[in-house]
């Protein structure tokens, strides 16, 4: 690890305690070491030699698997007539180049159920907090909020002739002591 760090830091000669270390692996790009012996086959989606299954960029830059011994025979057979390939071999070839099919990529994950369930849980939690506040924290509602008191308040406004031009008293028929019709 120390040697690789040293070599990555620069390609120049590093002098440590009189000894001279010369890096021999100066110009190996980090991407090549990450993909092993996988074949770089295209541009991918951003030009990096990386693999990702994407429906909008369906052709990644590298093949999914390394050309190990178990695939050698199959890859040789691919060079011949494809009619000689069995369905299993065709599928193996596909999985050699790609990890997931596009159908698998776009398969529903069912995560929406979790999202809705968790959202409803949070909502119910908020309602329980409201119930608790109502029971244990808030004072009782003032008596002016009862129907009887609200009616008395309205009667008083009418008797005081509040807002007689276009407000509440303008709609009251004082001669018959009831609301004007229409």
């Amino acid at each position: 690890m120390a040697a690789s760090l040293l070599s990555r830091s620069s390609g120049r000669v590093v002098s440590l305690g009189g000894r001279r270390h010369v890096s021999t692996t100066a110009s190996v790009s980090s991407a090549v070491s990450k993909i092993g012996s996988r074949e770089v086959v295209g541009h991918g989606f951003n030009g990096e030699a990386s693999y990702m299954d994407r429906a909008d960029y369906p052709f990644p830059a590298v093949r999914f698997r390394e050309p190990s011994a178990e695939f050698k025979a199959l890859l040789a057979k691919e060079k011949g007539d494809w009619k000689n390939l069995s369905v299993e071999e065709k599928k193996a070839l596909y999985r050699f180049s790609f990890c997931q099919t596009i159908a698998e990529l776009k398969a529903p994950t069912g995560e929406w159920k979790f999202c809705i369930g968790f959202g409803l849980f949070l909502s119910s939690f908020a309602i329980w907090i409201y119930i608790w506040m109502k029971r244990c924290v808030y004072s009782p509602m003032p008596e002016s909020t009862t129907l009887e008191n609200k009616q008395a308040q309205l009667r008083r406004m009418i008797d005081m002739r509040i807002d007689p031009i276009d407000g509440v008293s303008s709609r009251w028929d004082y001669e018959n002591d009831r609301w004007k019709s229409s």
């Binding site: 429906a55 052709f59 691919e78 494809w82 596909y94 180049s97």
Partner: peptide
């Protein structure tokens, strides 16, 4: 000689 690419093209 790239069979997988054919299937991937059809899928896309």
């Amino acid at each position: 000689n790239d069979f997988a690419l054919c299937v991937r093209i059809l899928e896309s």
